[in-house]
Design a binder for these strands. Sequence first.
DNA 1: TTATTTATACTCATATTGAGTATATTTATA
DNA 2: TATAAATATACTCAATATGAGTATAAATAA
Lengths: 333, 333
Amino acid sequence: MTDEVPRILTVQRAAHSLATPAQRGEAEAWADSPVALPFGPFDPGEHRTLELGLHNWVEQQTGLDLGYVEQLYTFGDRHRDPREQAGGPRLVSVGYLALVRQVPLSGAGEAEWHNWYDFFPWEDWREGRPAIVDQAIRPNLQTWIAQIADADERQTYQERLSIAFGTEAAPWDFERVLERYELLYEAGMIGEALRDAQIRAALSGRPVPQTDSETLETAERLGTPMALDNRRVLATALGRIRGKLKYRPVVFDLLAPTFTLLQLQRVVEALGGVRLHKQNFRRLVVSGGLVEPTGQRDSQSRGRPAELFRFRREVLSERPASGVGLPAARIIG
Amino acid sequence: MTDEVPRILTVQRAAHSLATPAQRGEAEAWADSPVALPFGPFDPGEHRTLELGLHNWVEQQTGLDLGYVEQLYTFGDRHRDPREQAGGPRLVSVGYLALVRQVPLSGAGEAEWHNWYDFFPWEDWREGRPAIVDQAIRPNLQTWIAQIADADERQTYQERLSIAFGTEAAPWDFERVLERYELLYEAGMIGEALRDAQIRAALSGRPVPQTDSETLETAERLGTPMALDNRRVLATALGRIRGKLKYRPVVFDLLAPTFTLLQLQRVVEALGGVRLHKQNFRRLVVSGGLVEPTGQRDSQSRGRPAELFRFRREVLSERPASGVGLPAARIIG
DNA sequence: TTATTTATACTCATATTGAGTATATTTATA
DNA sequence: TATAAATATACTCAATATGAGTATAAATAA
């Protein structure tokens, strides 16, 4: 986090990221994005555990010392890389989510920080409901679903649309990041979907599908594409972290040891993608025993100086589920 | 589920379950338990996705058609199998959690249903706080922690004990199944820990540690051991499913299409390991819109016949988080 | 006919939550 | 120096959710 922007660490796409690096060529219109999540091979000979391997590799590539680390998901489907052939070798990736304070980067990986919402513009509701949701996402998805021939399948997608993007009655569920991304991919609305379709067509000798400029433009407004299925991995991570906020005090790994309550709130808001009610947030976090005052005050602010707080580790053993919840209704709009 | 008992599917430990099947011998006192979770190899040539591979293999081994399936965790640490050598090949397992209605089994795997709590006797609080917690678990863990030489390390373990098993002030958190299991393993209190220590000693040529009869007896009271780290996997699954209950309607996959509210409650209680307040459970589930009445009544009961309900799928698109929560305080006891 | 069992409805005190008003303490500016 | 603006913090209040009951209904068993 910097300046209320949640950031992710990326590396320049390296050669060894491709399972089958040879095949390219025709499909250059949506050529692979150079931006990728940090990743590397796991060497069972060298590393006792997956997590140790991760720590080591990230340290070497970025100079970062990881604090909180949690296994996210294991991705092993063939469609991850459109170049993989049936019967060929398979790239299986075990994804991890780590939270670190933003620090200068070093190491071998050409690592960079990126605004998380550059990849998911529709997930940031802090300035209100993003215009793109009603301008492009909903109508386009609705049109796409309407042209599905099979009635059962159409019904299933209609339900998925309601669950993922909400309805008149039901609110937007901020945790369903992956569901939203997957619908957009399946509907061919985002860059990776267009790119993968082209690659697959080129590899199988079929004519490469031409994409009309409107579709292209929408795809561009739907965020920066990433290598392979990395944006899908990232969607999984955002959904997971949002879910976790509610019942585990994970945010504190993104903050300095002492912080003002507003700083804490800004981090929660940035990850959740929503604005929260300040006074109630304070009440939740203070009387909930998540933080304790240090007696010191912050000097840097404009108005009345805020007190500095620290995380109360004891809360872990006091309350079964201690987090800073983001129920749909607690949002200020 | 049958008769208020949550059951898991096991297979007889097959030869191919061992990464290095040759090495055995000395350590027969705690020989490998024959009971294992269903598992099998993943063939990337044959299966497009990990989940399809899973479906296929389970179908073939047990005759079961899996409904709800969710990826659990990927286990790839060396200590999973005490026989694995540094530098040797590594067994990496992607665990999945699937919920099915109990049906007769067939297939090649000698599959059987087992009471889940046979493996975790301390997790079932439906008849009150299990005696073993205060008789054996707490005092033994406390003694074990007390003899840790390093003060920092001792402090860390003390905190883990509080978080996992609760304190006077803090309640037992029913989701922390894995944390509890791991402490018991590390303290050498359960069968697998004793077995693995013996195997490791035998393989490295050290004298095989003798276990006194009291330790052995406690280990036996702490449930049935499983092959490799399978009980750890199972602990992960129980924790996951308990957490999921709260905010996703997963239980319905374990029930017939129509059911009485008591049947529903019993399933939730069995998984959660707690008793719930009947009237409040009804209120939660009915006015929460999770179920709807069918108009039909159940004939099989003793007292007043109960109405049959069905799951309201629409709730998925209506409420962000729809589940049948089990907060610590809602427990009857 | 009565006891027992189970289901369902309703009550009520308490806790939690959402939303707001009021006040305090600072810096910036007229 | 006085006042405005910004920020922090305290407090109120209605609405809702939750925990723990009591009351009543509808069946079977004795």
